[in-house]
Design a protein around this nucleic acid. Structure first.
Lengths: 370, 370
DNA sequence: TTGAATTGCGCAAACGATTGTGCAACTCTG
DNA sequence: CAGAGTTGCACAATCGTTTGCGCAATTCAA
């Protein structure tokens, strides 16, 4: 029978029962045995607590215990599907361990990030999971968390050496590039996200490595991009596609960027994959129904969430475990229809475009529905 | 100069300065004037606070103030792009007003929802924003929040009469249906999400109304669907597409469902929009690059977030404002390429096969050649 | 019958902030 | 120079829990 009006507290329950708050507290926290509370008293407390719908105040509890049973999550853009899914996995795993999650969106802005982090620390989160915007300034809270553990996710940082969990961005890019090279592509461009962030730069490095070991040029004229938005993707793709020597393939270092590439290609009347092959990062539900269905480097989002939470919780339980562990999770390539096989080693220059209707592509790989 | 080791508190700062915590508190909260703290003391406090990187403990503050400056957000699936965007807007607006957001994902499960809500209440959120899973049981916390305000979003509820903000789901469905009817469609199906949830049912009602006022049948044989997932969408679309009298158009009551429809159509070798027109709900970045680009009923997500936060904060500031306001925000139709014009008023029957009442599962849909 | 052991629980001090009240030490005023 | 007014801050209670310590009352042993 819920009292709609009663902001019942442990204290008031104790008063009603004519016993001390201490006893109620001990009963409710299962310490009845250890403190030799009589069975009778215990049952009376339990019964009354249930009947009144008592929920103990976590605020007061946290204050006393110096532990909030909550963690902070700092994400650059929660509306980016990759981070949305990651956030979901993290929240789910944390809940599984009895932790709540305080989420903030840094909007890829270092100041917002710093402010949000300070706020979370002032709310006494037990630990922090951060996908950092970039290398933090010296007065950034990331550098002096109040002794509370912090684990990075998706993006590593050199400067403050913190434990981290990411997927193997570099290898993902290598895989994608090798895939294209094996299908005869020689000029392969990159539409990048935010230069300077770890995931982005690692992917660029992977691309460069693969190109180099195939003896191919990987100059700056093959890279463009200024951020993880569709518009930035469109602009970058346009730049690349208008180069004198147009790439026959591009890597889009993010699924939102792939949308930009697709859109730019439409505008320029360039057919994917006939005139331009495309490999994108981060699988999404819709990646199988774009035209064409996208070949994708998939990150293990669920594993990322699980690992990062577990790692943080380990640190919370036993701090000061000095060597900041780094877990790099494997990625895999999902082949769909956005890559054209140019045949053995031949570079086929793109023909002057002319719009052909979209072929009724048959369904292929299923989007990663978890 | 950040003390990496100092968990500085207002209290300890006061001790260091040789003054009382009361004074420090008053200075830090800008009450120096009102309490006639001398300029000298004020500056000494401010300086020391800045130098030591002091952040006041919000836990203790909240306990004393009986106000946490935080709100809870309960979402059925944060990885659904619609809710992810909504969450972002809500978090952003709340932050703008100085509130933090505690997010939980109910996974469309009433028990998880109830547990999460209880947890949030025990963490003393000042208010709650909920997209409810369904009509809550009598012992659901939604029915007896501890006197704290709660605003629903996206989904209304009849039972506990709470203020709410949604978009005009019903009118959106009417718009979409009228759009199709105006283009000559007569058999228009619905792929629904979770029957019983408000948004879903309102859309169905809108569809029925539009069909009825055009004198068209809107029977249950034109509706299918069991949830907001791609797989559910595929299954529902398959059911519809295999009916003896196949619809010439379908409404997908959610963007993820549209992906399912697209996929099912591929499998059945039915070309969109040539053989089947499609209108979906909730615009997404990728909706413009699917094949074909999707005609969409768009919800004003930013406005939804803004309104729901503002409404909640009003309630927090001045509770007991009895009439539970409901704000219904307008939607609009974005025309793209997934609807075919069948010509003025001509009823183009789907392949006029033999009239079989509800065949459970005919072998395979005809190859939609025409 | 008495001292020791056991049982069952309450007292009170934290945790770290906020705030109404009080009280010295000045500064005026006449 | 005495009383009144002002200035500048400290005291202590409070928010709701948790927990070390202690103390009555009962039971037991001798």
């Amino acid at each position: 029978m819920p009292h709609t009006t009663a902001p019942m507290s442990l204290k008031s329950l104790a008063r009603e029962l004519g016993i001390s708050a201490a006893t109620v507290s001990r009963v409710l926290s299962g310490q009845a045995e250890r403190h030799r509370i009589s069975i009778a008293t215990r049952d009376r407390v339990l019964g009354a607590a249930r009947a009144s719908g008592l929920v103990v105040d976590q605020l007061a509890r946290s204050l006393r215990l110096r532990r909030t049973q909550s963690i902070g999550l700092l994400i650059p853009d929660i509306s980016n599907p990759f981070f949305a899914q990651l956030a979901r996995q993290i929240e789910r795993r944390a809940r599984h361990h009895g932790y709540s999650v305080l989420i903030a969106d840094s909007e890829e802005d270092a100041d917002v990030e710093a402010a949000a982090m300070t706020l979370m620390l002032s709310r006494r989160v037990d630990g922090l999971i951060v996908a950092p915007v970039g290398t933090p300034a010296t007065d950034n809270p990331l550098r002096s968390l109040g002794g509370r553990p912090c684990v990075l996710v998706d993006r590593l940082l050199e400067q403050p050496s913190l434990p981290a969990v990411t997927s193997d961005h570099r290898h993902g890019a290598e895989l994608a590039t090798q895939h294209l090279i094996a299908r005869g592509h020689r000029r392969i461009g990159c539409v990048e996200g935010s230069p300077g962030t770890f995931a982005n730069d690692a992917r660029i490095a992977g691309w460069r490595a693969a190109m180099a070991s195939a003896g191919l040029a990987a100059g700056d004229d093959l890279v463009a991009g200024t951020g993880y938005s569709v518009d930035a993707g469109v602009a970058a793709a346009r730049t690349l596609l208008r180069r004198a020597e147009r790439p026959t393939a591009v890597l889009a270092l993010g699924n939102v960027l792939a949308l930009g590439v697709l859109q730019a290609a439409r505008e320029e009347r360039i057919i994917v994959p006939d005139d331009l092959s495309l490999v994108a990062f981060d699988d999404q539900l819709w990646a199988a129904v774009t035209s064409p269905a996208l070949t994708i480097v998939e990150q293990p989002i669920e594993a990322l969430g699980r690992e990062v939470v577990d790692l943080l919780l380990e640190r919370i339980a036993a701090p000061l475990d000095d060597p900041p562990a780094r877990r790099i999770l494997p990625v895999r390539l999902i082949e769909r229809e956005s890559v054209r096989d140019l045949g053995a080693g031949r570079v086929v220059p793109a023909p002057p475009a002319q719009r052909t209707p979209d072929p009724p592509a048959p369904a292929h790989g299923r989007a990663g529905a978890r």
